[in-house]
Every structure is written in structure tokens, then in C-alpha cells.
């Protein structure tokens, strides 16, 4: 079975890595391996925006990991991500390619002035991980409200979907 190299780009919350690994293995045909890659997000820090540019971060991840045939690489960062035309992105992936990355910054309730909620953070992280890695299987956004491939542009929308794929998306992943 192809591998998913799960690469935390900084120290992450307790329990987050195993939960993401389990969530992915339960839904996608991948074996998750933890990989500590020498990728420094500071290289894609944008001074003017005060955020990290996700597109070159993806390139950096893929270049550093050098994944084998069928392997994927998923970076997890604390840093708030953006692409130039948008104020932020939760994550980014190469549709049909090996790379995916997502950020915990806006998944944290504290970002919105709410008290910390470790289990909610983990739930959201699993959904975003599935979503971005789903893109690497060539999946595009899905209209099914429960499906992890549904587009979410705010944290509330992340909470509405489930950490699973609808039957249609699951069929496409094969």
C-alpha cells in the first residue's frame, strides 16, 4: 500500500498526530508514516502579510521528501497559511500530485477568542487532513454536506462535515 508521510513542521498538540494518522488510514488506501523532514516554514514567511505562503511550502515539502511512486506527503503547521489572492487558506494540496499541507492556526477555537478545546481541534484537524490528502487522489470539492471533500471556508463549515468520504468520493478513490 502507498505511504503517507505525515510531517509535523513544529511540535504539535498531544494526541493530534495519532488521531490524524488513524483518521486517514480509516478512510484512504494509505499507510501513514511519521516523517520528520528538515523543512523550515520560515523560508516561506511573507513579511508583508505576516503569514506563510502555502504554495512554495508544498513545493519545499515534496522536494525534501522525494516521495516514491504513489506516496503522499502531508505537512502540518502551526503557521497561518495564505495564497496571494486570498486572506488565508486552511490548507493546500496538489490535485492529483503528492503534496498536501494544512494549518492548525485557524482550526483552534482560541483563534476566534473561544476557550481552548483540544478534542474539537483534533476533530477539525482530522477533517482537514482528509480533505487535503483527498485532493491528492484527484478529488475535487463535493456537494455532499457530510463529505470531508466539501469545501469549507470557515471553521463552522469544517464542523458541519464529517471525517469521512461520501460514497461517490470513496468510489473515485478506489
Amino acid at each position: 500500500m502507498p505511504r503517507l508521510l505525515l510531517s509535523p513542521l513544529s511540535a504539535l498538540d498531544r494526541g493530534l498526530i495519532p488521531a490524524v494518522a488513524e483518521g486517514i488510514e480509516a478512510v484512504l488506501p494509505l499507510t501513514v508514516e511519521l516523517a520528520t523532514l528538515p523543512v523550515d516554514p520560515e523560508e516561506v514567511w511573507d513579511e508583508e502579510r505576516g503569514q506563510y505562503h502555502s504554495t512554495p511550502l508544498l513545493d519545499l515539502l515534496v522536494k525534501t521528501a522525494g516521495p516514491g511512486e504513489g506516496d503522499r506527503i502531508l505537512g502540518v503547521t502551526e503557521g497561518d497559511l495564505f495564497i496571494p489572492i486570498l486572506t488565508f487558506v486552511f490548507g493546500e494540496a496538489q490535485v492529483g500530485g503528492p503534496g498536501a499541507v494544512f494549518s492548525l492556526a485557524r482550526l483552534r477555537p482560541t483563534f476566534y477568542g473561544l476557550p481552548p478545546d483540544p478534542s474539537l481541534l483534533i476533530e477539525r484537524a482530522v477533517k482537514e487532513a482528509l480533505h487535503e490528502v483527498g485532493h491528492t487522489f484527484g478529488l475535487v470539492h463535493c456537494r455532499n454536506p457530510d463529505c470531508a471533500m466539501r469545501a469549507s471556508t470557515n471553521a463552522g463549515e469544517v464542523d458541519l462535515k464529517r471525517a469521512t468520504l461520501c460514497s461517490e468520493c470513496a468510489r473515485l478513490v478506489g
Binding site: I83, P84, I85, L86, E92, V95, H135, V140, H141
Partner: peptide, 18 residues
């Protein structure tokens, strides 16, 4: 006229399958 805007939006909408 900005390449970086073109590419960002191409990817963004590409994710939607447009």
C-alpha cells in the same frame, strides 16, 4: 496581469473542479 494571481485562482477554482 499578475501571474501569481492567475495561478492562485487557477488552483483555488481547480479544487472545486471548475
Amino acid at each position: 496581469d499578475e501571474k501569481v494571481v492567475q495561478e492562485s485562482l487557477r488552483r483555488w477554482f481547480g479544487d472545486y473542479g471548475y
